[in-house]
Computed example of a mutant assay.
Amino acid sequence: MIRKAQAVWRGSGRDGEGVLSTGSRALHDTPYSFRTRFEAQPGTNPEELIAAAHAGCFTMALAFALQAADLTPTELNTEAAVSLERDGEGFTITRSALSVRASVPGIDGEHFERIAREAEKSCPVSKALNAEITLSVSLV
Rank of each mutant, 00 (worst) to 15 (best):
L84K: 09
A119M: 07
K4Y: 13
I133W: 07
G23K: 04
G56I: 00
A65F: 05
I115Q: 12
V140G: 00
A68W: 08
D15L: 06
T92G: 03
V104K: 15
G90L: 03
A81L: 09
A68V: 00
R10N: 14
V140K: 00
A55E: 13
E132M: 04
P73F: 02
W9D: 02
S33V: 13
A69C: 07
R95G: 05
S138E: 15
E89N: 05
E17D: 05
F34E: 01
V137W: 03
R101T: 12
E48A: 15
F38V: 06
A102F: 06
Y32E: 01
S33M: 10
V100P: 02
D87W: 01
H28N: 05
R14K: 15
E132Y: 11
W9M: 03
K127C: 02
H54Q: 11
A131G: 04
Q41C: 09
A55C: 12
A63S: 07
T36A: 04
R114P: 00
V19T: 13
I133S: 04
A63K: 06
K121V: 09
E118N: 14
V19Q: 05
L139C: 11
V137H: 01
E89T: 01
A80R: 03
N45C: 12
S126D: 09
S24R: 12
S126C: 10
L62Q: 10
F38E: 06
D70Q: 09
V100S: 13
G106Y: 08
R114Y: 06
M60R: 13
T94E: 10
I50R: 00
G56C: 03
E120D: 10
F58M: 10
H54L: 11
N77F: 08
I50W: 02
F58N: 07
E48T: 07
P124V: 14
T22R: 05
R37Q: 10
S138Q: 12
H54F: 10
H111M: 11
A81H: 06
V104G: 15
T30A: 07
A51M: 08
M1E: 02
E79Y: 04
R114L: 04
T94G: 12
C57A: 01
V140I: 03
R14G: 09
L84G: 14
R95I: 00
D87M: 07
T78R: 12
Y32H: 05
K4L: 14
T59V: 01
D29M: 01
A53D: 01
H54E: 06
W9A: 08
S122M: 14
E85S: 09
A63M: 05
T30E: 12
A55D: 13
E120A: 15
E75G: 10
H54G: 07
F112H: 11
A81V: 15
S96W: 08
L129S: 09
F34L: 01
C57V: 02
E75N: 06
R35L: 06
